[in-house]
Design a protein around this nucleic acid. Structure first.
Lengths: 367, 367
DNA sequence: GATAAATGCTAATATTAATTACCTAAACCG
DNA sequence: CGGTTTAGGTAATTAATATTAGCATTTATC
């Protein structure tokens, strides 16, 4: 609409707006059919094939409706960025990521619009649609648990820059950012190793979850790097809960050669671990070092304060905004970006007691 | 669009879509002028008056653009409710209120769209505009601190049902819901009184804040109800922080007749209070009973767990949704609804020690 | 295997919106 | 005071979209 001048030179019309005619030509049907499909006009019969071809063409050509509505939508408004997350209330990470995204977008005068999907197959499309109604210029799609997602087709059809936060698709069709859990598990374990620990237990989360596997992988890598042999006895499967942390710790303490440090793969597990150690009459960190993961609120209030790793959700939110303008080329593939979980050093780690190490060393021989 | 049949019977056209012609007629200008205004077409000259008249008429008539864009937008979509809050990340209350609102709206198939305003005069209008662009059917306007707000004119002009959450306007032009802080302060204090305490200290927040004043008022009312005289010595002004809680507690302990119980007007203050009591060698609740306020995460992790009052943000969120359909009649006035802060009983309150009470009773006489 | 009914679509047409090309009255101006 | 700007529009035109009517096909139906 800016400079169409369609009248003057019929040869020059190419760069004008995309119309239903163009879509019709591309999809091999009539303008009317396009109108039916795009409006979902009730009472008309269009085959799924044609419907798909039209939507496909509309997306490919970047159809944008009448210019009025779009222009008016944007008037006096910078860009609006949509942020869809499956859960908002269950954990603070979503909030932190949103805050990071907000900060980054604020800087460029963009506004963030947030909605929850709850992974509900009925509500999610509605939520996304509500988001796109106002004409968002980009979408961030976040999940609360790190995992692979299958992006619903209506998200792909949006034809706007999209970034995945804390999740990724198998086809790598969108830029994605997740925490570097492997590196996190590795640095947590290395932290213990550099404090002189050689026998380090770990309590995992539910092992089918990506995060649990990755943290365990990091644990093994750190061990391998330090040439400490991996002992399966020292790995106890938990389920992220304090209760599991308690019994897992008891299990580790019952070992013939108990560890001198425990890497709890989340903070709640560490809470249970603290309880168990207290009940066993062991002091932290003198008798047993503990590290957690996630840097939940509670980790600061435990006594002694828990050394743990912060999930980089703030940085992930910022990253997402900053990488929005990487155009989503159809067919292009993006690597998954991983952001570091940095260790925050508090008071739950110390060198193993000389005595304990002595006993341990001595125990080696008789065996 | 559903049943326009504009052709058949020219008399029956009334319920058809609102077009630019209608707006032009209402505004007393041409369709072209309407187009210019609505599109903000550059290079055209329209007086501010005409511009206003057009916008006014467009709003009044509920102009919705070409049907393509809107129909497609709305298809398969129930109502969308906008939720504007000044801050999302600083405290968990906003999240809780959103969760309440989400639950309530989910039930009726509505979708919630959330945005942050940060009270920023530049961004707030943009954020609200982003919200309304998609055609929200109602708005919830929340502040993180309970306070009076002046609703910006663009909110009033939205002409959609609006509810204020945790804030209110002086003119009572919108339904509003806030926590009943007075009742909360009263029941906290009464809780201590029913446990046998007569000499109850309180540590306030920053006293210029509504919440601090109300909680103090509740404290005085509970005292009055129980015929306990108010002693200004027992009221120490804090600032919601743990640090202030610590020194305020010390101040209370230094009193000639120290209290047997302390009502900390928020949980963080109580954290400082716990510290101070520990340092003074006093046990909770045997030597001193403590109640907090807000039911923050930390209150559950303190030892002993803190008896405190939950802010009813979940209920407030639900209330807001449920009271959205109370039409906003121009000129109508709505009372401010207050929702109860219920006390959650944990382990920081006990009866005053017989000995302490004895000393106290004895001390009365000599005075 | 003829007939009816439904499907899938298009041509033609109606409606709506955007744009160009003026027009008019007041303000300006030497 | 006559000419020239210019703000503030309108009418007419054109582009784009929505809708109606119907036309081939295919798919039951008897």
């Amino acid at each position: 609409m800016r400079k169409p001048k369609t009248r003057k030179n019929p040869e020059m019309d190419k760069p004008a707006r995309v119309t239903m005619m163009d879509i019709a030509a591309a999809a091999g049907c009539s303008q009317a059919a396009v109108s039916f499909v795009l409006n979902d006009t009730p009472g008309t019969r269009i085959s799924q094939q044609t419907r798909d071809r039209v939507l496909e063409a509309a997306r490919a050509l970047g159809y944008m409706g009448t210019s009025y509505t779009m222009k008016a939508s944007y008037s006096g408004l910078d860009n609006v960025i949509g942020f869809a997350v499956d859960q908002l209330a269950t954990s603070p990470e979503a909030i932190v990521a949103i805050e990071g995204a907000r900060q980054a977008s604020w800087n460029t005068g963009n506004v963030l619009l947030v909605t929850q999907t709850l992974g509900d197959p009925v509500m999610e499309p509605k939520a996304i649609k509500a988001l796109t109604n106002g004409g968002i210029s980009a979408l961030i799609y976040m999940t609360i648990y790190t995992r692979e997602v299958k992006l619903p087709s209506y998200v792909c059809e949006l034809n706007i820059p999209t970034v995945l936060l804390n999740c990724y698709t198998a086809d790598h069709a969108f830029p994605a950012v997740v925490p570097s859990e492997i590196a996190g598990g590795q640095s947590s374990t290395r932290h213990l190793i550099t404090h002189g620990h050689h026998r380090i237990g770990t309590i995992t989360g539910e092992i089918w979850m990506q995060a649990a596997q990755d943290r365990l992988t990091g644990y093994r890598r750190a061990l391998a790097t330090a040439d400490i042999p991996f002992d399966p006895e020292l790995v106890v499967e938990g389920d992220w809960s304090a209760g599991a942390g308690y019994s897992a710790t008891m299990q580790l303490l019952a070992l013939q050669e108990p560890p001198t440090a425990i890497f709890c793969q989340n903070d709640r597990t560490a809470v249970g671990c603290y309880e168990a150690l207290k009940d066993a009459g062991l002091r932290i960190p003198q008798d047993m070092s503990v590290v957690g993961y996630d840097d939940e609120e509670i980790s600061r209030h435990l006594v002694p304060a828990l050394t743990t790793s912060v999930l980089p959700h703030l940085a992930m939110g910022q990253w997402a905004i900053e990488h929005l303008n990487l155009q989503t080329m159809p067919g292009k593939r993006y690597p998954i970006t991983k952001l570091e979980c940095s260790l925050v050093n508090r008071h739950s780690v110390a060198a193993p007691r000389a005595k304990a190490r002595h006993i341990f060393d001595g125990a080696q021989a008789p065996r």
